[in-house]
Amino acid sequence: MMVSASSASLIRAGIPAILLLLLGGCGTTIDESVTTPGALTERPATFRNEQLIGKWGVASYREEKDRRRVEAQARAQCRLPYVIAKGPSDGVMMHLADDAKLYELRIKGGSDGKTYLGPEAPPGEWQDREILSITDKEMIMRFVDPEVHGRYGTFIYVRCPG
């Protein structure tokens, strides 16, 4: 049962999921990448929208071995920062994947215990990002859609000085 279920999701997710499997190197990666959209209910979130506001250097990576290096690169990208502003309904103005328009997004807690960032919709929607961590200096997130995640990898945002 377990085997057939996971191979079905691999077929649906296509190459990116296979990539995740290879790069992740552990079983939990698969579970995380095949979140069924819309199946979650919302819970109170552990992070606040305001924590995202500011200027960030942004870089992405796929393999854990690149993470330190990419973190340094993200810091260097403050020359061309990604600016997150407060939205009209207390959300934050950010982009979705592959779309040059700004949308108002907000942080959503999921019933799976994870934190999502996305437009007004149940947590874990295809367009959402999953927030892996946020500190004052750095946040790490990735797209929920395994196909999009496969293309972009994991994003590191490093807060720019000033």
């Binding site: 796929r62 393999e63 972009y152």
Partner: peptide, 25 residues
């Protein structure tokens, strides 16, 4: 190789990371 999209490209595709570590995508 790593990839750094040029600023003109960031202007048109602001959702891009400013630096992307080398890899299949």
């Amino acid at each position: 190789p790593d990839w750094t999209p040029p600023p003109e490209m960031i202007a048109r595709q602001p959702y891009l990371p400013r630096f992307m570590a080398g890899g299949p995508g």
